[in-house]
Computed example of a mutant assay.
Amino acid sequence: MSNPLKAAFIFVAPNGDPKKDRNWVITEGVELLSVAVSNYEQAEILAPELVEKEGIVAIELCGGFGSAGTARVAAAVDVPVGAVRFDIHPGLDNVSGDKIFS
């Protein structure tokens, strides 16, 4: 069997602290690190660290990241970056993260 995919899911949460608000889910085919950040800037700093230090080869972003936030994280790394899409996000008072963090 081949090695499992090492991926990260980054989500925006009020006062999210990527140093402590993180957890691994490990299955036979995927090892997924879920990490909270409080804004786009934290995600831009975090993403390259995950690639370099954790061996992450794919990143998925939560729906709180709008198009601008997704582009910022994608520009920070050389691995595929995908995103769950919401035009408005229920966890961010029904607005896009682009409106809050850009």
Rank of each mutant, 00 (worst) to 15 (best):
S2A: 15
N3H: 12
P4C: 14
L5Y: 12
F9T: 02
A13N: 11
A13V: 09
P14C: 05
G16I: 08
D17R: 12
D17S: 11
P18A: 08
K19H: 09
K19Q: 11
K20T: 15
D21Q: 13
N23H: 13
N23W: 08
W24N: 09
W24Q: 09
V25N: 12
T27D: 05
T27E: 10
T27V: 03
G29N: 15
G29V: 10
V30K: 07
L33A: 06
S34W: 05
S34M: 13
A36F: 05
A36Y: 04
V37C: 00
V37P: 00
N39V: 06
Y40V: 14
E41S: 13
E41D: 13
Q42W: 03
Q42P: 10
Q42K: 06
L46K: 01
A47L: 05
E49R: 13
E49C: 06
L50V: 10
V51T: 05
V51W: 01
E54K: 12
E54G: 07
V57Y: 00
V57K: 11
A58H: 10
C62K: 02
C62P: 04
G63P: 06
G63Q: 03
G63T: 02
F65L: 05
S67N: 09
A68M: 11
G69H: 03
G69C: 04
T70N: 10
R72T: 00
V73R: 00
A75G: 04
A76I: 03
A76F: 01
V77G: 01
D78F: 01
P80S: 03
V84N: 05
D87V: 14
D87A: 15
G91C: 08
L92Y: 08
L92P: 07
D93M: 12
D93P: 04
N94G: 09
D98W: 05
D98M: 07
I100L: 13
I100N: 06
F101A: 09
S102I: 11
